[in-house]
Amino acid sequence: MKEKDILSKDLARELKAYGVSRRDFLKYCATTAAVLGLSEFEFTTGLVHALEKPTSNKPPVLWLEGQACAGCTISLTQSLNPPISSVILDKISLRYHMTIMAAAGEVAEKVRRETVKEGGYILIVEGAIPSADDRFWMHGEISGRKMVEEAAKNASAILAVGACSAYGGIPRACPSKGIGVSEALKKAGINKPVVNISTCPVHPDHLVGTILYVLVTGKPPELDSKGRPAMYFGEVSMHDNCRRRAHFDAGEFLKDWNDPKQKNWCLFEKGCKGPVSYIDCTIRRWNDGISFCLDCGGLCQACGEPVFYDKVTPLYTADSGISKEIWAMRKSGASKKDT
């Protein structure tokens, strides 16, 4: 591949201002392309093309926040390191984001209405949509549900970010009976594909990777059976790569945190739901690859699965319906079960 020809001098200079060298950029492109299942050439040329577009031509992004905690927004800002992701986020035109935009009130609302009118934007929804009563989430004069439905009609791609907007998450167990975006759109008769980037909160790599995929190829990535990007979800369970796995097979379950002998035993009895959790945390890890739940003595609560949270509670005992299913799986010798 002739890299010199792909990366123009102007863009190389611009990247340098962010502290990203030409070599860093091409290295990032190569590794990201591999994960996304695209050829390095296709990905790099596509990304350069997207980055070089003039300001007025930037792909617009609308970020709507429903029944959420803004944790996904915070998780995304974590991706500022490495700076390459921040370049990409600067390059997309984030037109509307309640937590981080400078404008407020009517000025902000005008931008949202105009973008929806124009169409062709990437719609990102964080948070569930209440199904019990619209008044659980009002946006000015209209209900949040209506705002999402209107925005979905003209969107070129719809990303449901985080467990809440993918499947309802914690709000589904609440009196507001939150539901995911795909379910809400189906209810409203809007037939559009939704990419569920679940986990609570969203993993910055998953989100930036999916945005890149849409920018470069112009279409949503391949999805697994639960509507999640197949490049990150659905293949390997947390259980498969768990360092305590051998103890699960040997029937050694931690019952007493104070007993040093049990310290490395399987956490099933303490409420771990790893065997039903098909997310790539064990490979990708969190906080810029430093650690993740299982590596710091925590349990997997299957936060990226549709069963989260109402079916995995109680979290810290093996009494939930899901824990009972896992136990039945172990008894029957089945290694995989669809949740």
Binding site: G66, C69, G71, P171, S176, Y309, L315
Partner: peptide, 26 residues
């Protein structure tokens, strides 16, 4: 916007509360 975390937590295992309420505001 309201979800009703307090009402939802009634009757739940008390240890759930630390996990769930940390999702009140992220």
């Amino acid at each position: 916007m309201a979800r009703g975390f307090e009402a939802m937590l009634i009757g739940k295992d008390p240890r759930d509360a630390s996990y769930v309420t940390s999702r009140f505001c992220g």
